[in-house]
């Protein structure tokens, strides 16, 4: 009796979950399908779902336009560069707050958090003018710099919560054995911190890759990452749905894969440890 009920429950919830999951995922799937259609078919009514002339022509076209690679490269440099620099600044800071906390540590952490809450549009004007003055508009250096600072609070917070979980006994044992702080850092702390470092790196790569306020406002062509490049398809003359879909699929594919790996850390990173 009970088993019957359970089995029915599993069937119902499985059907429900798959249905709604598919519904939510559908726009992405539809985009991927459109990327394999011809422009005519992508536009056709009634739409064809699976039985159309599959073609990889759009991907070839997107690849031939060398500027796609240019923008993809910009995305890699900007997202990767800003994340790495943020990590370099954040690791010592988080390490220090996690292992030598003072009375003010909590205040400093909360203050860092509050800088993340400043709406970027509130400082758009001065940043734009500063960039203009120093010739940083449409430059990769400028975007690396801005995204690095923008994500720094999240990086510090995530690392802090991970470092906090490293048992302190181990550090004390190392100290008792006469390890210097440098050795402690290299041989004890780093190996234990690698999982936390990896997930912090991953989440921030995703955030920086998808960032679409500063990249849209501060880059036009030369330094434009994929966010800005895709936005250029919004102009009327860019009404090529199949090519837009192919370019979009290429732009989100790597990050979708990374994102799926890091979904557990996502909760922690984005809620600043408020939900576990």
């Amino acid at each position: 009796m009970a088993r019957m009920a359970t089995r029915r429950r599993v069937v119902i919830s499985t059907i429900g979950a798959w249905f709604f999951g598919f519904l939510i995922f559908f726009p992405i799937l539809w985009m991927v399908l459109a990327s394999f259609k011809t422009e005519l078919e992508a536009f056709a009514i009634p739409p064809s779902f699976l039985f159309f002339q599959w073609t990889t022509e759009n991907y070839a076209t997107v690849q031939e336009r060398s500027d796609y690679f240019h923008h993809a490269m910009n995305s890699i440099i900007i997202a990767g560069g800003s994340t790495l620099i943020a990590l370099l600044i954040a690791i010592p800071a988080a390490w220090s707050m996690a292992f030598s906390p003072t009375k003010r540590t909590k205040d400093i952490l909360l203050w860092m958090l509050s800088t993340k809450m400043m709406p970027p549009v509130g400082v758009l004007v001065p940043i734009y003018l500063i960039f203009k003055t120093f010739g940083l508009l449409d430059s990769r250096v400028g975007l690396v710099f801005i995204l690095c600072l923008g994500n720094l609070p999240i990086v510090i917070w995530m690392l802090f919560t991970y470092f906090k979980e490293i048992p302190r006994d181990i550090l004390e044992a190392a100290r008792m054995d006469g390890a210097t702080i440098g050795r402690e850092l290299v041989y004890v702390l780093t190996p234990m911190a690698i999982p936390g470092l990896a997930s912090t790196l991953l989440l921030n790569l995703i955030l920086a890759w998808n960032e679409a306020f500063w990249t849209l406002n501060l880059s036009t062509s030369n330094a434009a990452p994929l966010t800005t490049f895709i936005a250029s398809y919004s102009s009327p003359e860019g009404l090529f749905w199949a090519k837009l879909s192919a370019a979009s699929t290429l732009a989100i594919a790597p990050i979708l894969v990374l994102g799926w790996f890091s979904q557990k850390q996502l909760v922690r990173g984005l809620t600043f440890g408020a939900v576990k």
Partner: peptide
């Protein structure tokens, strides 16, 4: 499938 839209860049 449910989490995927969060990883799609806003312009896309």
């Amino acid at each position: 499938m449910v989490i995927a839209p969060f990883f799609v860049m806003p312009t896309v």
